[in-house]
């Protein structure tokens, strides 16, 4: 397998109501190129799944969407990514408010070594979202409720977040993200460290969140992509091969590589 020369993305890469637009994005780690000329849109209030074999660049791309790659010294990005028509890689843009608008949930649940309450309150506190203790309490309760965790933890808000089970921890992390009231939520294989029951709960949650948020989810599970997303983007060796409505990708993929992947010929 190697890079396809002069490749253009197959399918319906662009959206009518785009929230995020990627245009000719290249990503380099030192001298190594990880992403090649990726252009597509993520529509408002849709769930888009990024799939592909390991090392295909899907996680790297996802991390470009809220400039998480800035924390890696050797990482360099070319091309434009627009959030509401505004280039997030513009030198004038501050990553802090950007990340408040584009939140992220990670592969491994990573609650802070603080209480459940403080975990949720962390974002609102640093961003100054609550004027009073009461307001903060409200935000915490609302976030936990939307993450479907309220009933499980309401009696132990002040016990450490690390004491929860894996699935609860991941929902705590989602609640923590929601608490900042972002516009977009990026999820990097959020269920890969969880058991099937916890996974089902998170998937249900993603479906509910779609009403208010735009969600991009990286997953290595095709079933998950099929269950939660409206559109699916297939990455291969750092290139975006195909973007299409999820039903179509899984039934009649346009590109032979996509087909090879979803039929399990490599992965």
């Amino acid at each position: 397998m190697s890079i396809i020369e002069n490749h253009t993305t197959n399918g319906q890469a662009f959206s009518e109501a785009p929230k995020l637009q990627a245009r000719n994005v290249d990503v380099f780690y030192g001298d190594k190129q990880a992403i090649y000329d990726v252009s597509f849109d993520i529509g408002a209030n849709e769930v888009i799944a990024l799939i592909g074999p390991s090392g295909c660049g899907k996680s790297t791309f996802l991390r470009c969407l809220n400039r998480m790659n800035d924390t890696i010294d050797i990482c360099r990005i070319e091309g434009d990514i627009l959030l509401d028509e505004e280039n997030i890689y513009d030198p004038k843009v501050d990553v802090v408010p950007l990340r408040a608008r584009v939140g992220m949930v990670f592969q491994k649940p990573n609650p802070f070594p603080k209480s459940i309450y403080d975990n949720i309150a962390y974002g609102p506190r640093i961003h100054g979202l609550a004027q009073s203790r009461v307001e903060l309490d409200e935000i915490v309760e609302r976030s936990l409720q939307r993450a479907g965790l309220w009933n499980e933890v309401k009696d132990r808000l002040h016990s450490p977040g690390t004491g929860l089970s894996g699935g609860q921890q991941q929902r705590l992390c989602i609640a923590r993200t929601i608490a900042v009231d972002p516009e977009v939520i990026l999820m990097d294989e959020p269920c890969s460290a969880l058991d099937p029951i916890a996974t089902a709960k998170i998937e249900e949650l993603i479906d509910e969140l779609r009403e208010n948020y735009t969600i991009a989810i990286v997953t290595h599970s095709m079933q998950q992509a099929a269950r939660v997303s409206q559109r699916t983007a297939y990455f291969h060796m750092g290139q975006l091969i195909e973007v299409n409505p999820t039903d179509q990708v899984f039934t009649t993929p346009e590109h032979s590589l996509t087909e090879a992947y979803i039929t399990g010929r490599f992965g």
């Binding site: 809220n66 998480m68 924390t71 990553v95 802090v96 408010p97 950007l98 990340r99 408040a100 608008r101 939140g103 992220m104 949930v105 990670f106 491994k108 990573n110 609650p111 802070f112 070594p113 962390y122 974002g123 640093i126 961003h127 992390c173 923590r176 993200t177 900042v180």
Partner: peptide, 13 residues
């Protein structure tokens, strides 16, 4: 590193 990521991901400086 995951704790740093978690914090930066929420928009912390």
């Amino acid at each position: 590193q995951s704790l740093r990521d978690g914090s930066y991901g929420l928009g912390a400086t």
